[in-house]
Design a binder for these strands. Structure first.
Lengths: 335, 335
DNA sequence: AATGTGCAAGCAAACGTTTGCGTTGTTAGA
DNA sequence: TCTAACAACGCAAACGTTTGCTTGCACATT
């Protein structure tokens, strides 16, 4: 199943077969048709490895790195990226890092080995990964980050305006008259978690909303962490009037805890969450939240990467995506 | 960044560099270390294309084809597959078909061109795709199907025992005393949809449960279709006492319709669903459903593919996965 | 008849590796 | 001192393509 084999079988030279199949001039119509037909008959598909090797050109492949494919947020981003890449004829390797720097670096090396044209990544925030990305970037590899980024590296990135989102949520509960706030956080190692938590604490302080230390729970972006955190908050004697949940999977767990303890939302406890997920929509009552735009994030990440590859207009190094407050029925009006 | 470049820089022969870097004998320790250090310094990673080309061997890459990455079911399968593949050092191209035969065939061709070692696919059921898979399989390509399969092709597949799942659900509502049944179906072009719908109709008939034609709604596996279907059912004068939802995304839409119309579950209408999704768990009341095992499905699909590639024990052509009935509070007891 | 034009096809090198074989040079055993 | 053994390294071909160059040939132009 190679051009050489076709050439041998048909008694012509490989170069002629190559030209015939790739539509280049220099082959008579008769011979070209004969070659095309024979290639179809034996089920020949060109070897992309050999082709890209010889052409010294691009492989037409990209690498995408995400921490967790089970997280609907990332699944939605991937879906959007896929759409753009397909329309530009790119294939991509999907790599899952599990937030493990070693695994991520392993994948990066293997992407480089496969000579991908570019990499789109939601990187694991860690010194090792940071150094590795930095090396890759300075050796002219094309990289675009989404959802996360390294503040000290000036690699293009598309991220949600997390400060804005948190402030919208806190403004809302403030207007509804809440003065005490609990927080279900996620891993503070992730830049996202760090920004959201810090913004929440600072902004709450500014608005004179009380956040007791024991009302801050959760240090992991998992469903289980959300479940345990919400339980811990609910079981305290002195509770906050509203709980802010900083991420989607933790929200799922938190809602499970609420259901299990039959806590009444918003009568007994109010809730606001980051991310407009399925469960925030379908919970009873539906949860007030800020919506990120993972679709837009994916589209921009992919388009920007392609633009850079095509040496089109260079974009802003960092694109901040707006959030949208979606007011539902999970916050009690206290004034 | 190539072996030849390293060789030139260091004044040795490329073959020596190759041996040094791949740990083969025939290089003095001194020189080997020097070469390794230099390779690290300039950030050299072997060219997987050239290597696999020369070795006439496998590329260490696979292709995965799914209809929709946004569907949590497939996301979970992918996650499980990824886990297995990573532990066996495989990379994979992720291809999304969108249930579009042309797109799927395009992706298949491109996977072949990239000379993947094997393909794991939830195929779009269509004559064109069927013929294409058939051709690939008879030309010795390694393929494993999951979730879907072509009954007339004997390509290995891992699928849920859909008949069993449907029967468990219908048995349950039968025991609870229901005699009238509505169904929110999905695309009957998918073998999954076809089997589920047919089993439901036949088995309901057998148990003398009435299914009026106007109680069968929905012909698409989308959230929107589920939403519209549930609305149509709820707005009828004569309603069934229970509605069976045949798939996960349609269930999300159906639940949205329920919330919107403020229909009381299970007092006004009972619900049962295929797939134990987030929203079936978190809805109030939580929905009685049968659980597939997407994780197991992914693990088996990946392991079987790898077994075949390693020419290990050949497995059963088709593996049927058991379903599990999860009884919650969405079905009213009528007797 | 000599020359020019243009098309069809072959030739060979190159992309980056790998690997069987051949060539050195050193050392140990007889 | 001779040679056998072995280690260290070079040589060149091959994997499947692509592409600039050359060759061969038919036909048209002078």
């Amino acid at each position: 199943m190679s051009i050489t084999k076709i050439a041998k079988d048909l008694g012509v030279h490989p170069s002629t077969v190559s030209r015939a199949l790739s539509g280049k001039p220099g082959v008579s119509e008769d011979l070209r048709n004969k070659i095309i037909q024979y290639a179809e008959k034996i089920g020949y598909y060109p070897d992309a490895r050999a082709s890209s090797l010889r052409k010294k050109g691009k492989t037409g492949t990209l690498g995408i790195i995400i921490p967790d494919i089970g997280n609907p947020f990332f699944a939605t981003v991937i879906k959007a990226i896929e759409d753009v890449l397909y329309s530009h004829n790119y294939n991509f390797f999907l790599c899952v890092s599990d937030e493990d720097p070693e695994k991520e670096i392993f994948h990066l090396k293997s992407l480089i080995s496969h000579r991908v044209d570019g990499i789109i990544a939601a990187p694991t925030l860690d010194n090792k990964t940071k150094n590795f990305y930095s090396k890759l970037y300075s050796s002219k590899k094309t990289i675009v980050f989404f959802d996360r980024f390294f503040p000290t590296l000036d690699i293009p990135s598309i991220v949600t305006n997390n400060e804005q989102g948190i402030k919208k949520l806190i403004n809302h509960i403030y207007k509804m008259g809440h003065k005490t706030l609990g927080i279900i956080s996620l891993s503070p190692e992730s830049i996202t978690g760090k920004i959201r938590l810090e913004t929440a604490l600072n902004y709450a302080k500014k608005l004179k909303i009380t956040v007791q230390p024991e009302w801050i729970q959760g240090f992991d972006s998992t469903e289980e962490s959300g479940y345990l955190s919400m339980k811990k908050i609910l079981k305290q004697k002195r509770r906050p009037s509203v709980v802010l949940i900083l991420n989607d999977l933790t929200s799922l767990g938190a809602l499970r805890a609420i259901s299990e303890l039959k806590a009444n939302v918003p009568e007994e406890i109010s809730l606001v969450a980051f991310d407009d997920t399925y469960w925030n929509q379908i919970f009873n009552p539906p949860i007030t939240c800020v919506k990120q735009d993972p679709k837009e994030m994916g589209i921009l990440a992919a388009k920007n990467l392609i633009n850079i590859l095509n040496k089109k207009n260079v974009l802003k190094k960092q694109i901040l995506l707006d959030t949208k407050l979606i007011i539902r029925q999970s916050v009690k009006k206290l004034i």
